[in-house]
């Protein structure tokens, strides 16, 4: 069984985003970039399935700028077997990413595609569902548990009311939620080994995909800031405030 895992290079989740003064976007110059945390969970899940003997090969894909190759090397260091880098210095919207990934899936014919449920930069939460739609395949979004079961996969999903389990016919698309697993740290020997693993460079045009944006960003601004309030002395003062608010 083959698994394809798409990954994205994003602003590191510990870095506070700064909006550019000209309102054109968020400043990504000279800041720490990392693999999208949900994608790390996706890579981990795929590698575990390989270690259990369920999967035979894990292929990681990234659509993004030249430096996204570093993100792919991180995924290879975690245990993926090879990488495909679809190079685009321009921003690629989720729909176009899904179309490129469809091309990759048609070439690679995996049984499972595991993606992060959303990237923490644009917070779109779209690509997995879109890929499933374009392929006409089932989707198990926001997964907290993935169990292979013959020609199908059982996916437990984190939904607003609790948990829900669905059975999906393979090939299927799964998107990860936070509690699916805890991604490993790559060991130094594995980081060294990852440098010699195969990484193929492609272009969106190789998959016949037009990446012209459909959405025009008119402005990016800081949200309204909340200012810090006051410190209150003790529980009695707090009760006073709750009474003023009409809730106690």
């Amino acid at each position: 069984m083959k698994i394809v895992v798409p990954v994205k290079r994003v602003l590191d989740y510990n870095v506070k985003p700064r909006v550019k003064a000209d309102g054109s976007g968020v400043d990504l110059a000279n800041v720490k970039m990392s693999m999208n945390p949900f994608d790390e969970i996706a890579v981990e899940e795929a590698v575990r399935l390989k270690e259990q003997g369920t999967a035979s090969e894990v292929v990681v894909v990234s659509v993004g700028p030249a430096k996204a190759s570093e993100t792919l090397r991180s995924a290879l260091a975690m245990g993926a077997d090879r990488a495909i880098h679809v190079v685009s210095e321009d921003e690629v919207e989720p729909l176009a990413v899904a179309k490129i990934l469809k091309g990759v899936v048609v070439d690679e014919t995996p049984d499972l595609v595991i993606l992060g449920k959303q990237a923490i930069d644009d917070d779109s939460n779209q690509v997995g569902q879109m890929l499933a739609a374009l392929l006409g395949r089932p989707q198990g979004t926001f997964a907290s548990k993935v169990e292979m079961d013959g020609a199908s996969v059982l996916v437990t999903r984190e939904v607003d009311g609790g948990l829900e389990t669905v059975r999906l016919a393979l090939p299927a698309i799964v998107t990860t939620d936070l509690r699916l697993n805890e991604p490993r740290y790559a060991s130094l020997p594995n980081i060294m080994k990852a440098k010699s693993k195969p990484l193929a460079a492609k272009a969106p045009a190789d998959y016949g995909v037009d990446i012209t944006p459909r959405l025009k960003v008119l402005q990016v601004k800081e949200p309204a800031q909340r200012s810090a309030g006051i410190k209150i002395a003790d529980v009695d003062a707090l009760i006073g405030k709750l009474k003023e608010l009409g809730v106690a």
Binding site: L11, K16, P17, V19, V26, I120, D121, D122, D123, R214, L215, K216, V217, L218, Q219, V220, K221, E222, P223
Partner: peptide, 14 residues
């Protein structure tokens, strides 16, 4: 909202 609400984007669809 983008970046966990640390920035707000105004976007126009075509």
């Amino acid at each position: 909202p983008i970046y966990a609400g640390n920035a707000i984007a105004t976007v126009e669809s075509s």
